[in-house]
Design a protein around this nucleic acid. Structure first.
Length: 327
DNA sequence: CCTATTTGACCCTA
DNA sequence: TAGGGTCAAATAGG
């Protein structure tokens, strides 16, 4: 892949970006501290760190475009699990073509990650998370005994998905992995959500509720097995959507989310849940004026029902901006 | 042949 | 300039 970033940016970073960078720094130190505290006899340390991380994630979400995104809770999956290089035998090349005769400089292309928004960091026992990742690099980080592996979404090139993650073995507990997620999945991965009997969702739709099967007179059944816990709202019947219409559905979804937050007793769900509804019959599309009434934070609507649909995501479930949406 | 991984080079940011 | 993130050639394996 050839980069065409046009070199480093000469414009000063906006204040929000600076704030974001500061938060990134805080988060990184918190992660290190979390690692240090692992195995500590101080029982509250873990909870304190968890609280810190959650608040940090919330702050990122509040930053909107710079920090908003989706949090996917970990689950069983089939992602590559070669955080320390296990698996294939070393394959690497000898020398880069042209390196011996002189470095082949690409025209000021940026090789550095273009600051994908931080999503979250979690410590798990397995690097697998059910998503489709492809490893693109591994490095030993300064003073770290374990290498850090870099993964990008498998659909980066075919769908332009910018999601990446970094996996590193815990310093204090080698049986655990510290995973940092950057960028939200914008790809349509069948493992994310599939609808039985439904037409294929739009390419740029990550989590889709497809109404096409409703049009055909068959019930839409959403497989939510791959959904993380934070994205499931008990009591929501997806198959009842046609009877409710979208505004009613959004209200119900909002209420269900509120109930879930209440059930978790103030635990800040640093998650932002992207919601995309596509292919809905025209009669179920809310009029622009209905957006506020729904109050589910739908951030954008299509010009016509035939286009993708409206998209939005639940922002941080904090004190003041409950269910605020960001695009 | 195709896809995934390895790994040194490249290059940006602090 | 050091550290770290990404690229892409080389390679392994299905």
């Amino acid at each position: 892949m050839t980069s065409h970033n046009g070199g480093r940016s000469s414009e000063p970073p906006p204040p929000q970006a600076a704030l974001y960078d500061d938060l990134v720094g805080v988060r990184e130190r918190a992660v290190m501290l979390q690692t240090v505290l692992q195995g500590s006899p101080v029982g509250d340390a873990g909870e304190l760190m968890q609280g810190m991380m959650t608040r940090l994630s919330s702050a990122f979400s509040r930053l909107g475009a710079n920090g908003g995104g989706v949090v996917a809770a970990s689950g069983a999956g089939s992602a590559a699990a070669t955080a320390s290089g296990a698996g294939r035998r070393p394959g690497g090349r000898r020398t880069r073509a042209g390196a011996a005769a002189g470095p082949v400089r690409r025209s000021s292309g940026s090789r550095r990650r273009s600051k994908s928004p931080f999503i979250k960091t979690e410590t798990v026992t397995t690097p697998e998370d059910g998503q489709s990742w492809r490893k693109y690099g591994q490095k030993f980080i300064h003073k770290s005994t374990n290498p850090r592996s870099y993964y990008r979404c498998t659909h980066k090139h075919d769908q332009g998905c910018k999601a990446t993650k970094q996996v590193q073995k815990s310093e204090s507990n080698p049986s655990e992995f510290v995973i940092s997620y950057f960028g939200e999945h914008t790809c349509k991965d069948p493992s994310t959500l599939h609808l039985e009997g439904a037409a294929a969702p739009p390419d740029h739709c990550a989590n889709l509720i497809d109404f096409s099967s409703i049009n055909n007179g068959t019930a839409a059944t959403a497989s939510t097995s791959a959904f993380p816990h934070s994205m499931l709202f008990p009591g929501i019947s997806y198959s009842s959507l046609p009877a409710q219409g979208l505004p009613a559905f959004c209200e119900k979804l909002t209420q269900a989310a509120a109930d879930q937050v209440a059930a978790e007793e103030g635990q800040r769900m640093a998650a932002t849940v992207p919601l995309t509804v596509g292919s809905a019959p025209a009669e179920y599309w809310p009029a622009p004026g209905e957006v506020d009434a729904v109050d589910a934070g739908i951030s954008s609507f299509p010009s016509s029902p035939s286009s993708l649909g409206f998209t939005g995501s639940f922002g941080s479930f904090g004190d003041d901006d409950l269910f605020g949406f960001d695009s």
